[in-house]
Design a protein around this nucleic acid. Structure first.
Ligand SMILES: [Zn+2]
Ligand SMILES: [Zn+2]
Lengths: 458, 458
DNA sequence: GCACAAGTCG
DNA sequence: CGACTTGTGC
C-alpha cells in the first residue's frame, strides 16, 4: 500500500537511521510544507497486486536526500507525482501471490490544508486522543532513511484489497478470548463464528496484533475501513455529517481512530480514502500480542455516512517504505447494541444454512391444509383446556377457521419434523397471510360504508 | 413579533407608499447594507405580552423618513438597539389581551452576512437558497448614532409565544377538508382530532390562511418553528447536520421553507431563531383561503437536529411594521410515514383517555371476565349467523380471540367504545365458556369421549 | 404498504 | 435490557 513514513523523532532533517517514533503529525506537516514547493502532487504507492501491476515506474521521481521520508510519504500518498526532485530507491515490491493493494492512504497535502490552524493543537477526537494533528507531535519523528528506489505504480483507481495475507511474518489480529456469548451490555463483542466485531460507537475497543517472527524495524500498521459489498467498495468510507470532527481535526473524517498517541491520520489525495497508521511495536516480553485501542465514530447505520452498509477493516502490516508485509481483514458492525445485534446475526446466520437441505419451495397452498386436518387426530392436547369462540357472521367465521387450521397444523407436526414443517409452513403461512390479508381487505372494503368512517382501525 | 419589511420591490430607496411585493432577498440585503453605517444593532420588537409588557417604548427610536421600513425592520430584529439615528414613529402596539410575543425573527444583519454572494438571489427553497448567517458581522453594525433614549429591554431571552390569537381580523389557518382517515401513502395528512399535521420530509404541503376582514395592506405571514415541550422551547429549531443547506443558501438552517418566490428567510441575530416571512395576499376572489406550499427539510427524528422532539409552527399575521395582528399554532410531525404515524398517534390518543375509566390493565387470562358480564348485550349484529369454534389450547385460543377482536372492532369502530367492547366480550365469552363447559361435561358424561364433536371444519 | 432494522427511552 | 420508535428496503 501506501507508503508511509516512519521518520525519526523530532529530527528536523530526516536522518537515515531512523528513530523509532514516527513523526508527529505537526512535525510531519511542517516538514511537508517545506516540500510543497518542490512537489505538486505525489502519487500513491500501492501494491498493485490484484488488479494491475503495470505502471510501476514511479520510481523515476527523485527526492532529496534529507527529505527522503517525506518524499516517500508523498510519493506514496499522492497519486500523480509530478515533480519530485529526489527519488530514493524504492524497494521493489515483492510479488507475492496475494500482495494486495489498498488504495493509497494519507494524503499529506490534504491534511496540510486542514491543518492550517495549527493552534488547534488537539487532534483528539472527542473523547479520545488521537493525533490529529497538532498536538504533540513535532518532537517525535525523525526522518528515516532515504527511500531507496521504488517503482510504484499507483493504480489509484484500484479498489482496496481485502484479501487476507499473513505474509512472511504471519501477521495476525486477535480480539481476546472468544467470548462465547455476547454479554448483554458490553460495548463490544467479537463473534468467532461470524468472524465479526460488534462495537458500540465511540467506545474504545481493543484489537491485538502479532507476528510470529519479528518484522523489520519501523514497521507500522495501517487501518483502512472499506465497504464490504462490491457495490459500495468504490465509495470512500467516512463519517456522516452528524459525526464529522471539527475542521482543525486531522481525523475529522476518519471513521476509525486509534488511541495511540503516535497515530497518524491520512486522507489519500487520490482515492480520498481515510486511513490511520500507527507504529507496530512488538509485543511486550511475555505477551503474545500488541494491543491497540480503536474507536469508531459512526454507526454503520448513520444517515449520510455508512448508511447501513456493511464494512470491514483492512489491517496492513507495512514496513518503513510502505510495502505490505501482511494483511488481515475484520468485519465490523458499529451499532448501539453490540450484544443484541451479534445474537441476531448469529441466529440468522445458522438459520441461513440449515434450511438449505429441505424442499423449501413448497407447492401452492392447500396441499398442506389437507395434511394435518384429518390425518392427524391430535385433537386436544392431553390436558389442554377447551374453549369456544362465538363468532357473528360467516365471513369472520371462515376467516378465523382458516387461521385456526394453520395453528392446528403446528400441533400435528412431529417434533423432529418441525424444522421441515416450518419451512413448508413458512411458505404456506406466507401464502395464508396473504390470503387473509386479502380477505380482510375485502372485508373492510365492504363493511366500511360508514361514512367518514375509517378513523381508526384498531 | 418582529417587524418585518414589506418594501417595495427593487426600489432602491424605500418609498413609503409601498409596493406590493416585498423585496427580493438580494435587494433587501443590498439596501440593508446601505443602512449599515447608521445602525449598530437593532433590537427585537416583541410583543411582550405574556411575559412582561414592560419595554414597549421602542417607539422612541427615530428613523429617517426614507428609511423607515428598514429601520423598523432592524429595530424589530435586533435585540439591543444601540443607536439608531432616526426613529420613525412606532405605532404603539395594541395591548390586546393576548398579544403575544414571539421572539424576534429575521435578523437582517445576520442575513446580510451570509448574503455576501448576492447572486444567490433566489430565496426559494428547493435547493433553496436562503440566506445564512455566519460570519459576517462586523460590517453590519456601525456604531450608530447616539441612541435616543429608549427603554427597551429586549427581553430577548423571552421564549416564543405559541398562544393562539385570531385577533381583530380573525386570522385562521386551514388544512383542507378533514381527511377522515389518513390515506396510506399520502405525503401529508392532517388530523383534526389531534390538531396536528403529519408531513413527509421535503414534500410540499399546502397550508391555507384567511382573515374575516381584510387586514391592512402589506401584511405578511411569519412562520416560526419551535419545540413543543417546555424543556426544549428555549432551543432554536434548525436543520440537522445531514440536512443543512449549502453555505450560500439563505435558508440553509431553516426547517420550514415556502415555495412562494417572495419568501424571505430570517435568522434572528439575538435569538438565532430561523423564520420565514411571506407576504399575505388576500384570497383570490371566490376562494376563502390563501394557499401557500411549505416544505420541511428535516424529520422530527433527525439526529443532531430535531432529534425526535415534538415541534409546532407559529404562524403570525403581521402588519408592515411588524406588529402582530394574529397568531395560529400548528403541531407538526415531519416523518417518513405520515399516514401510519397519524393512525398510531390517534390510536394512542384515544387510548390515553378512554382507558382511564375502566380496568385497562388486562390481567392475565380470566380476570377480565369478571367485569361486565351482564350489562352489555351487544351480541350478534342484527341478522348475522352465529358460529362456534372449538379451540384446543389457550395459546391458540388467545391468538384467535385477538384476531376476532380486531375484526369485531372494525365494525364498531368508535374508538372510545373499544374498552367497552372489551368488557362486554370478556363477560360474554366467559359466560359462554361456562355454559359450554357445562354442556360438554354433561355431554361427555353421556356419550363417552369421542364425541367432542366440534371438529368444526367448516 | 408491510415488515425489518436499529437507535434510544425508561 | 426490553420495547418502542421510526426510517427504509422490498
Ligand atoms: Zn455518523
Ligand atoms: Zn435532518
Amino acid at each position: 500500500m501506501d507508503g508511509n513514513v516512519p521518520l525519526t523523532q523530532q529530527t528536523q532533517q530526516p536522518s537515515q537511521e531512523m528513530a523509532d517514533l514516527p513523526l508527529s503529525q505537526e512535525t510531519f506537516h511542517a516538514l511537508w510544507a517545506t516540500l510543497q514547493n518542490d512537489v505538486t502532487s505525489g502519487s500513491i504507492l500501492q501494491d498493485p497486486v490484484q488488479v494491475n501491476l503495470q505502471n510501476y515506474d514511479f520510481g523515476t521521481n527523485v527526492i532529496q536526500e534529507n527529505q527522503v521520508e517525506f518524499q516517500v510519504e508523498q510519493i506514496q500518498m499522492e497519486p500523480h507525482i509530478p515533480n519530485l526532485s529526489i527519488i530514493p530507491s524504492m524497494p521493489s515490491l515483492p510479488s507475492m501471490p496475494s500482495l494486495p493493494n489498498m488504495n493509497s492512504e494519507g494524503s499529506f497535502l490534504d491534511q496540510l490544508n486542514s491543518a492550517l490552524p495549527p493552534q488547534a493543537g488537539t487532534d483528539q477526537t472527542p473523547g479520545h486522543n488521537m493525533p490529529s494533528s497538532t498536538g504533540y507531535a513535532s518532537a517525535t519523528e525523525p526522518a528515516t532513511s532515504p527511500p531507496p528506489s521504488f517503482s510504484p505504480p499507483p493504480n489509484n483507481q484500484q479498489l482496496p484489497s481485502n484479501v487476507e495475507y499473513p505474509g512472511d511474518y504471519a501477521f495476525e489480529i486477535n480480539l481476546g478470548q472468544p467470548t462465547s456469548q455476547a454479554a448483554k451490555s458490553v460495548s463490544w463483542t467479537y463473534s468467532p463464528t461470524l468472524k465479526k466485531l460488534f462495537v458500540d460507537r465511540d467506545k474504545p475497543c481493543p484489537i491485538q496484533f502479532k507476528t510470529t517472527s519479528a518484522p523489520p524495524p519501523n514497521c507500522f500498521i495501517r487501518v483502512l475501513p472499506i465497504f464490504k459489498q462490491a457495490e459500495n467498495l468504490a465509495e470512500v468510507v467516512s463519517r456522516c455529517p452528524n459525526h464529522v470532527g471539527s475542521p482543525q481535526d486531522y481525523s475529522k473524517d476518519h471513521l476509525v481512530l486509534c488511541s495511540d498517541p503516535a497515530t497518524m491520520y491520512y486522507t489519500d489525495l487520490q482515492s480520498a480514502r481515510h486511513s490511520l497508521v500507527v507504529p507496530y511495536t512488538v509485543p511486550q516480553v511475555g505477551t503474545e500480542f500488541s494491543k491497540y485501542l480503536f474507536t469508531f465514530k459512526c454507526f454503520i447505520s448513520c444517515v449520510g455516512g455508512l448508511n447501513r452498509r456493511k464494512i470491514q477493516l483492512v489491517f496492513t502490516l507495512e514496513n518503513e517504505t510502505g510495502s505490505i508485509l501482511g494483511r488481515q481483514v475484520l468485519d465490523v458492525r458499529v451499532c448501539a447494541c453490540p450484544g443484541r445485534d451479534r445474537k441476531t446475526e448469529e441466529k440468522s446466520f445458522e438459520k441461513s444454512k440449515a434450511p438449505q437441505k429441505k424442499p423449501l419451495k413448497r407447492g401452492p397452498s392447500k396441499v398442506t391444509s389437507v395434511v394435518g386436518l384429518t390425518s392427524f387426530s391430535k385433537k386436544a392436547k392431553k390436558d389442554e383446556e377447551t374453549f369456544l369462540i362465538e363468532v357473528q357472521g360467516r365471513e369472520k367465521y371462515e376467516l378465523l377457521m382458516k387461521i385456526k387450521e394453520s395453528l392446528d397444523l403446528m400441533d400435528c407436526v412431529a417434533p423432529n419434523q418441525i424444522s421441515q414443517y416450518r419451512q413448508q409452513q413458512a411458505q404456506q403461512q406466507m401464502r395464508l397471510n396473504h390470503q387473509i390479508r386479502e380477505e380482510l381487505r375485502r372485508y373492510y372494503r365492504k363493511k366500511p360504508k360508514k361514512a367518514g368512517g375509517n378513523e381508526n382501525k384498531k
